[in-house]
Design a protein around this nucleic acid. Structure first.
Length: 426
RNA sequence: GGAGAGGUGGCUGAGUGGUUGAAAGCGGCGGUCUUGAAAACCGUUAUGGAUCGUGAGGUCCAUCUAGAGUUCGAAUCUCUACCUCUCCGCCA
């Protein structure tokens, strides 16, 4: 949510930014609603002043044991006038808020304007894995090695759910433990283990609601949503709070399962682990001072990259163009790992600076000696990294001609010293 | 799930219909004192909005979990939701 004052003062900036995000909201209409609201508010406030004055007179009359009836009649009259205006103001406020809450964030000036075709690869690390045999896909490997059972997952839950078993389950666990260790021990993040179900306010605070409602699992009995990412509970930790300035920056990391309905996305792109309804992810979340947020974004990206480097996975970092940015993001880098079996770049991380967009919605502020008034913090987050697709890359890139999978060295301590996964239980 | 109690400022805690944005204490901040510190004393201490002012700042309005209601007037009365606590039941 952007500040309506920005619209009042600089409608062209907003118009340009929203156009770059392919959003068409009626800014003039919004501005008119705001103008009308302020006019009524002035009227309302002055009536309230009168009411308060009359009330003071009544209470002193009562103290002096005099008859207040005449003044009560006046106050009654004012109260009626207030009742006439108040609902109008409220209605306008709701209208304005309903519009604002559905307007995306504006892109940062360093973001290329345009759609996907304007996305820019900013760097690559490593070389796509080449084999002198025809590499198998992760699906073939996992089924042959008996470490993932897609059929039974479908029996239990439905299509695009995953059942990891044996070394598959162990590898999953090894991965998120490894990632959490790197981020907490070396990158300065504090570990969080949040609830996986959150309420409407939390979802609205980070910007999933109202736009993404259909993409989320919702429990109507309890009015709760399953989190699509740890970003939601972790960012909302400080909702409606004013933090001491010296607490910033705050870095949090969290492992959670993530739940996505992925409505209407069935097709060949969704085979295997590429797009599933439930996956594991280690998330990085930052709360920082505004002037530092773009430096913090670069650091965040490199923290995520570090994980892929240590896993020995070739990847590239992509700067997203304006129309490809998510609703709440001002700037975003995707990290894509190359997977040899599918021969594809798979998005395993998405690192965004939301500037004060989420902080404004969720009211996350900080205050210090210099800042007399509370200031909205900047929030950032990124996957560090998402597991299902990383697992694809590991299985496909570390496969052997025999159909076995070597375990990346950094994960071996997390897997009881195992060096490879083969058909026989090891 | 059943029964009960409760939600007031950073915290503790007064306040049961009329100058209560809210006593008091604690904490925080500034100052006096001190070689320094402590103690003591003095002062200060929320958030949002509208409006005036180049600015510092001023004025007004709102806010005692949230929403609805009663009333000329609500922190105070009524209803609903949410949350917390206690007991019982159930349970990993």
């Amino acid at each position: 949510m952007f500040d309506i004052k920005l619209l009042r003062e600089n409608i062209e900036t907003v118009r340009k930014g929203l156009k770059a995000k392919n959003n068409q909201v009626d800014l003039e209409g919004l501005l008119n609603l705001d103008k009308r609201r302020r006019e009524l508010l002035v009227e309302l406030d002055s009536l309230r002043t009168k009411k308060n004055e009359a009330n003071d007179v009544i209470s002193s009359l009562l103290k002096e044991k005099k008859d207040p009836q005449k003044k009560i009649a006046t106050m009654k009259d004012i109260a009626e006038q207030i009742d006439g205006i108040e609902p109008q103001v409220k209605e306008l406020e709701e209208k304005i808020n309903d519009i604002l809450i559905g307007v995306p964030n504006l892109p940062h000036s360093s973001v290329p304007i345009g759609g996907k075709e304007k996305n820019k690869v900013v760097r690559e690390w490593g070389q796509p894995q080449k084999f002198d045999f025809k590499p198998k896909t992760h699906i073939e490997l996992a089924e042959a090695l008996d470490i993932i059972d897609f059929k039974r997952a479908a029996k239990i839950s439905g299509s695009n759910f995953v059942l990891y078993k044996r070394e598959g389950a162990l590898l999953e666990r090894a991965l998120y433990n490894f990632m959490l260790d790197v981020h907490t021990r070396e990158h300065g993040y504090t570990e969080i283990f949040p609830p996986f179900l959150v309420n409407t306010s939390a979802m609205t605070g980070t910007g999933q609601l109202p736009k993404m409602k259909d993409d989320m699992y919702y429990l109507s009995e309890d009015d709760l949503y399953l989190i699509p990412t740890a970003e939601v509970p972790v960012t909302n930790i400080y909702r409606d709070e004013i933090l001491p300035e010296e607490d910033l920056p705050i870095y949090h990391t969290a492992y959670t399962a993530c739940f996505r309905r992925e409505a209407g996305s069935y097709g060949k792109e969704t085979k295997g682990l590429v797009r599933v309804h439930q996956f594991d992810k280690v998330e990085l979340v930052k709360f920082v001072k505004p002037e530092t947020s773009y430096d913090e974004l670069e650091k965040l990206v490199s923290n995520a990259e570090e994980v892929l480097k240590r896993l020995g996975l070739c990847y590239r970092v992509v700067l997203l163009a304006s129309a490809d940015l998510s609703f709440a993001a001002a700037k975003c880098f995707d990290i894509e790992a190359h997977s040899a079996g599918l021969d594809k770049w798979l998005e395993v991380s998405s690192c965004s600076n939301f500037e004060d967009f989420q902080a404004r919605r969720a009211s996350i502020r900080f205050k210090g000696k210099e800042t007399k008034k509370p200031v909205f913090a900047h929030t950032l987050n990124g996957s560090g990294v998402a597991l299902a697709r990383t697992l694809i890359a590991i299985l496909e890139n570390y496969q052997t001609p025999q159909g076995e999978v070597l375990i990346p060295e950094v994960l071996q301590p997390y897997m009881g010293g195992r060096k490879k996964i083969s058909r026989k239980a090891t």
